[in-house]
Amino acid sequence: MSDQSPQQTPARTSYADRRKQRLDALARASADEEGGVSLIVSAWRRLRRNPVFLVGLAITITFVVLAVIAPWLAPYDPAARPLLDDIRPQTNPVPGPEPGHPLGGDDKGRDLLSRLLVGSQQTLMVGVLATLFGLLGGVTLGTVAGAFAGWVDSLVMRVVDVMLSIPSLLLAFTIAALASRPSQWTLIIAIATVQVPIFARLLRGSMLGQRASDHVLAARSLGVKPHAIVFRHMLPNALGPVIVQATLVLAVAIIDAAALSFLGLGNPDDRRPEWGQMLGAAQPYLGQEPHLAFYPAACIIVVALGFTLMGESLREALDPKTRR
């Protein structure tokens, strides 16, 4: 609009013109804001231009896609031992790269690339499911505590405090070690249990904040029933920080899962590879063949980084204080 208005000497625009330009600029700025549908959409608008988020998203999508198509992508069965004949226990315990096997093999003659690719399935599944179960448990406890307040809240929160007082990895070890037959499910349960108190505490805090908020008071003043207050007016508004925490927990869960299977508390069946377990198996060869440990470690780090970048930028986008 302002470009079409007749320009006078650029140094001395009249008061009316400057005012008009300012108003136009304001109108344009507010037009940008309009058409948004919800807070989530406006958060997405900010995320879309955030390079940190895009890098995290790219990493995550890459690994998720790789995990999904791994069975077709992997050149060999991760349990087959095509390089068995190359192993010389004294001189060459780990077969190196050769045509058809770009990363070489492991100490049992299995193709390393295939095992890494298929291993991503186990690692991601453990991470995602552990986070999901942790989220489910934490949201349930947090909702109960925040909705009822009073002695229910005190009871739930004391249990949560006790769980939080135990170092998380130690608690996960203990729970995983209690299982008579370790499997990826004991891993998932152990890691999920560790996350429950964190989610519960976080949600309970924001539920209590919502309970005291004006819009909940307004809803109560209209006679809205308690369960609708909790599930329609409190919970959806309180979930924000919990969702962000969940993205960050994904990274932690993947690292924890790797740590537990590295120590042999995960799935003992090495025909179904998993990165942490591969890392553990690489231990005896760390001195001579560091690449055996390097590849799975690098995968764990990059995936965890991807989730962390995504979670951090999501937190920033949803945080009203950092909004511009």
């Binding site: 008071l217 307004a218 006679g223 508004n237």
Partner: peptide, 20 residues
């Protein structure tokens, strides 16, 4: 409440549920 007696509050933004 809401049927026989209703109330209007001070701050119109914070008195509406932002996600509905």
């Amino acid at each position: 409440r809401g049927a026989d007696i209703a109330m209007i509050f001070q701050d119109p933004l914070s008195s509406l549920n932002p996600v509905i």
